[in-house]
Design a protein around this nucleic acid. Structure first.
Lengths: 200, 200
DNA sequence: ACCTGAACACCGTTCAAGT
DNA sequence: ACCTGAACACCGTTCAAGT
């Protein structure tokens, strides 16, 4: 994927970095690597990008721009579910987003339209602002944790580091649940989002 | 806090590393640093610890051992709430735990007794194993996300990188919620755990 | 104006050598 | 057996120098 020599630019750097992170993961995203892919010196990037954090924020804004907002739903509960599913899909496609959100501590303003639809739907359902904060916390933090955990689970599967049944000896309630978990490809995110929304 | 020269041992290394991570954070926890605190060469640690990941797992096991399990509750819903609050308190005290859990992909077996009480309470409430998996996902992933987000929020406050109100112009539902958020020290974790448990 | 190589101050870890 | 310093292969980033 090394590109032929072209003019360096912020968007060219961001798009190249996006390719690297999607193919090789966040820890492979180094300034030197991106520069190499662009056939240029590592230091040339700093003309267009303040530092690595700035690059990450740029990538996040770029991705946020390409998110397809879901159709407006006539039912407010379904509106909330569809917005959360859209965000969850973005996290599945780009797990590094959650890392940047949580560790850089900086979200993209480009998702504000989606966020405002969420809060508006909550308001129509009768939520006070205080309740809206609670539900936002529950919905988003669950989405963060679930996405990070999913990513880890994939990695662990590849590394064969899963827990073995013998470790659950003496813990019958746990063993009972784990036996089911093993034989069943579950995808609980949507079900759980609906449980939360039903409680609003 | 630099210790006088004593015999190196796995537990001495783990306890020293625990001090470092609690005082200076996970990114300050380097092999060289821990060694320096112990007045020894960085490479000496490798006699007692396989690598940095092994050290982190050792620290996690050590912390898991010191968790005070809550009293057994007569009501199963309250049993679940108290277990989750116990885990949440551990995450607040040691935010790096969540990083290790999610990025090393390795939990401590030492919390299995607590986990088994959780699954047993769910079973008594009539949960099938499939439902138990769903609720486990919701409870724990929310706890992960909330803890990471709390840590980030603290850091961001220190760095004065919070969002400014002007950024919410044109998004009235969001602005309305954010105005409340600013003036109100909220602690929504327990409320949200109870909401989840009520839905079981 | 735009790009760059050498250099700095860090990592985790390997390896051969000390006692 | 236990410890260690030098060295390796990496980082992000600064700085002075090239065109």
């Amino acid at each position: 994927m090394t590109k032929p020599r072209t003019k360096l630019s912020r968007t060219a750097i961001i798009e190249c970095a996006l390719q690297v992170v999607r193919l090789y993961g966040l820890e492979a995203l180094t300034m030197r690597r991106v520069a190499a892919e662009l056939n240029s010196g590592a230091m040339s990037l700093y003309r267009h990008v303040a530092d690595r954090d700035d690059l990450l924020v740029g990538m996040m804004d770029h991705v946020a721009d390409t998110i397809q907002p879901p159709d407006i739903q006539p039912h407010d509960r379904e509106e909330i579910v569809q917005i959360m599913m859209t965000i969850h899909r973005a996290f599945r496609n780009d797990p590094w987003l959650v890392h940047v959100l949580l560790f850089e501590g900086r979200g993209s303003l480009n998702i504000l339209p989606l966020l405002d639809r969420l809060y508006a739907a909550m308001a129509r359902l009768g939520c006070t602002p205080a309740e809206a904060i609670d539900y936002y916390s529950l919905l988003f933090h669950y989405a963060y944790g679930e996405s990070l955990s999913f990513e880890t689970k994939e990695r662990r599967k590849a590394a064969q580091k899963a827990w073995t049944p013998s470790e659950f000896e003496g813990f019958p309630a746990t063993a009972n649940v784990m036996n089911t978990a093993k034989t069943w490809a579950y995808d609980e995110f949507e079900r759980n989002i609906r449980r939360i929304v039903d409680a609003i």
